[in-house]
């Protein structure tokens, strides 16, 4: 099985290549898509899912289209923006489809992302649904005794709820920190070592090759 850090590295190199591409000719688009196909096969991600996921880009693309196509019509610049945008979105979607969040964080940790950031992401993921549940409970408690009278009063109530939520979160944070200290926490989350397979090396080398190919074809165009 592929490790998340090799997938992340491969996608970073791939996006770098897409973004740096100055003209985006058709043969290179095919090249990029072939790399993504290679990625999808190695990481056993469903191509249909990747395409579906990449639709998250549509609202952003529409904005880009409006601001760029209105003044000068659909020219090479708009084509370049749309093409690069969608290819990069495919890359991100492929990473997202093939890797769950927890494994992604682990991968980033092994790649050497700052410790504080890793802890933030880990705890955010762990406690997000507790926070949401707490908000829901507060909301229910409010709705049982509050029926929306008075426009200004609603803001007072909301302010109180937010303040309360902050305090509760803060106190939970303290309790969690105590629990961590009691088990010998010294400022670092433990890193689990993993072994890399030939697929990992293939993927990263493939991504680097894509980047290198772009470089070569820019320097000597014929």
């Amino acid at each position: 099985m592929l490790q998340p850090e090799s997938k992340t590295l491969a996608i970073v190199f791939y996006i770098l290549a897409v973004v740096l591409d100055p003209v985006l000719p058709l043969w290179r688009i095919v090249g990029y898509l072939l790399f993504l196909l290679f990625f999808a096969v190695l990481s056993r991600a469903s191509i249909l899912k990747i395409i579906k996921r990449s639709f998250f880009l549509i609202p952003f693309l529409l904005v880009i289209l409006i601001f760029n196509a209105l003044p000068g019509g659909i020219g090479p610049r708009v084509y370049l923006l749309l093409g690069k945008g969608w290819l990069a979105a495919f890359g991100l979607a492929a990473l997202a489809v093939s890797t769950d969040f927890v494994r992604l964080i682990k991968g980033l940790q092994r790649l050497g992302l700052p410790n504080v950031l890793i802890q933030l992401l880990t705890f955010m993921y762990r406690y997000l649904d507790l926070l949401v549940a707490e908000v829901r409970r507060m909301e229910i408690a409010r709705n049982q005794r509050f029926f929306g009278r008075g426009y200004l009063r609603q803001f007072t109530v909301l302010g109180n709820m937010l303040g309360n939520l902050f305090l509760r979160t803060f106190e939970r944070g303290e309790r969690v920190y105590v629990a961590m200290q009691l088990r010998g926490f010294q400022g670092y989350l433990p890193i689990t070592k993993v072994a890399y397979s030939w697929q990992d090396y293939c993927l990263v080398i493939g991504a680097l090759a894509t980047l290198a190919l772009l470089g070569v074809s820019i320097i000597c165009p014929y």
């Binding site: 964080i105 880990t122 309790r175 629990a179 961590m180 010294q186 433990p190």
Partner: peptide, 21 residues
């Protein structure tokens, strides 16, 4: 409240946290 005690993402990581430290 066990939610204060279990702060890692998977059960293995959480139970391993102390011994690793």
């Amino acid at each position: 409240d066990p939610n204060d005690q279990l702060f890692m993402t998977t059960v293995f990581e959480d139970v391993a946290f102390g011994p690793q430290n």
